[in-house]
Structures are given as C-alpha cells and as structure tokens.
Design a binder for these strands. Structure first.
Length: 266
DNA sequence: AAGGCAGCCTGTAAGC
DNA sequence: TGCTTACAGGCTGCCT
C-alpha cells in the first residue's frame, strides 16, 4: 500500500516517489485504462508497451522516465493519489504491468493529472520551476538573491511561489514561518537579515525532518499502513495554540488560510 | 513586468 | 433533520 496524502507537498511527494520507485521501476506497462481523459493524457495509450526506467521528484511533481524517451509527469495537486494493486474510488487511470500487478491513479477533485511529455517538453516544464530547497543550490546567498528580486511580495506568498522555490506548499510555509519567528503578513522587504537567515535554515530543517518522517498525514487517511508521521511535529497548521501555549490566529493571505502565532511571530 | 485573483472540482463541515 | 452554503487547496491564465 502506498501512502495517501491530502495536500502533498515536497516531503509527501518525495515519500510517494520512493515508494513508487520500489514497486514499479523496471516494470513494463502492457495496457492502460483511462477513464477520465481530462486527468490522464490519452496519448499514453498510443505508446504501450513501455518500461519505467526511473521515478523521481521535481518540485511537487512525480516524474516517471520511460524507456522510449518520454516521461509521465504527474501532479497530484490536493487530492490525487496512486494506489498499487488496490484501487479505490475516483479512479481515473490504471496501468497494468506485464507481471499482473497494476498501478491506479485516483483523483477526487481532478485538479492534477498525468501528462505525457517528450524530453524537450519536460525540460521546458522544469525551466519554469525555481530552486529545490533540499538541494545544494539552495544556499543562503541564493535565497537572498530571490528575496531581493521579489522584495515587494508577501513573504508567505513568496514561499509558495514555485517559480522561485519549488516544493513548499501551504502547510510547510506556515510551519517554517513560525520557527523563523516571522509574521506571515510581512512583505519580504520588511523581514530582517537575521530572520531571513533563520528562515533559510528552518526551510531546510523542517523539510528534511518531514521527509525523514515520510511526510504529514492529515485528515482521515491516518490509518493507512506506512503513513507519514510529521503531522505530530506540526506547530501551527490546524492548531489552536502554539508550542508556547499562545493562541493561534487564523487569517487569509493571498487567498490561502494562514495560521500563525501573533506572539511568537513578529 | 509583475502582482492579484477567479476558476477549476468535489467532499466535508458549518449554518439555518 | 435535511437542505444550502462556505471552505479547502495548487496552479494556470487572465486582468490590471
């Protein structure tokens, strides 16, 4: 059973990629069922059979590299899932492997989907994305240069901007801002250098710890075998009080629910 | 140019 | 109790 997450961000997608990789790399897809062509690219049917050479993550996307030069690019958005050998409701596509096993893609809100891309198209997609926060490229200098370029943005909105930093979503942006002690309503230009430095290191620390915990399992998926455990480490998301027992405030920033502690975050 | 925001979609929770 | 409405969320594309 693969983990099922609501709102998968970098740590959750990374976990799914590792689990998928263990199960499907090297396998040959001999047949594909597509029950919703708005979500799963019909072109995939045209290229069977194909072998899955590699599964990896870029930002919040799952990439399956095939043996024919193409790749399947999956974005789960909030409610997309993969299931191996046991589907459930909202199945939109199914990959049948030569060995009799199968992988399904299930999508409740159908926001995301699976696209078939050649290497040029894939490169073009990747070029829209910013730095990977857990890569060596994400230095404090790099972070500062991004902030300088986007200094009129709201600090939280910037963390969510995939073209600048790729992989952080609404949950982890709130978490890192709490640990860095930054008021999420602030503009980038209003955040001090000391806080920026702290934010940079907290982004890395929190995401890394969340990956080690196999992500956060929020909502009603907690009983699934092998679920993530970072939800036990969350400090502001969906909380009534912060670790110092201050009351959490919930506001809206850029159309997104945002929880923060007015005492700890200034 | 770049920031802001509606729209996509549907299950769940809150409101009456 | 049963219906209606609001909300959740990532990302694209349009508007300013």
């Amino acid at each position: 059973m693969l983990n099922v997450y609501k709102m998968p961000e970098l740590p959750e997608v990374e976990t799914i990629v590792r689990q998928l990789s263990n199960r499907i790399v090297g396998k040959v897809v001999r047949d594909v069922n597509i029950s919703d062509s708005k979500v799963v690219d019909l072109g995939i049917k045209e290229i069977i059979p194909f072998k899955i050479n590699k599964v990896y993550r870029r930002a919040k996307s799952i990439v399956m590299e095939l043996d024919n030069g193409n790749s399947l690019l999956t974005h789960l958005r909030m409610t997309g899932h993969f299931h191996y050998n046991n589907s459930e409701n909202f199945e939109v596509g199914r990959f049948n492997f030569e060995d009799g096993s199968f992988l399904t893609h299930n999508s409740i809100r159908k926001f995301g989907g699976i696209r078939l891309l050649n290497s040029n198209e894939l490169r073009k997609e990747f070029s829209k994305l910013g730095v990977e926060p857990l890569s060596k490229d994400f230095t404090l200098e790099k972070f500062n240069s991004i902030l300088l370029r986007k200094n009129k943005s709201n600090i939280k909105t910037l963390l969510l901007d995939q073209s600048q930093i790729a992989g952080i979503g609404n949950i982890y942006s709130q978490e890192v801002l709490y640990f860095a002690g930054i008021d999420p309503r602030k503009k980038v230009s209003e955040v001090s250098g000391i806080h920026i430095k702290k934010l940079h290191s907290e982004i890395i620390r929190v995401l890394d710890l969340a990956v080690k915990n196999k992500g956060s399992t929020v909502d009603n998926y907690t009983n699934i075998d092998g679920a993530g455990s970072y939800q036990d480490h969350l400090v502001v998301y969906n909380k009534f009080q912060c670790p110092k027992a201050h009351k959490i405030q919930k506001i809206n920033i850029g159309g997104r629910g945002t929880s923060y502690c007015p005492t700890c975050q200034r």
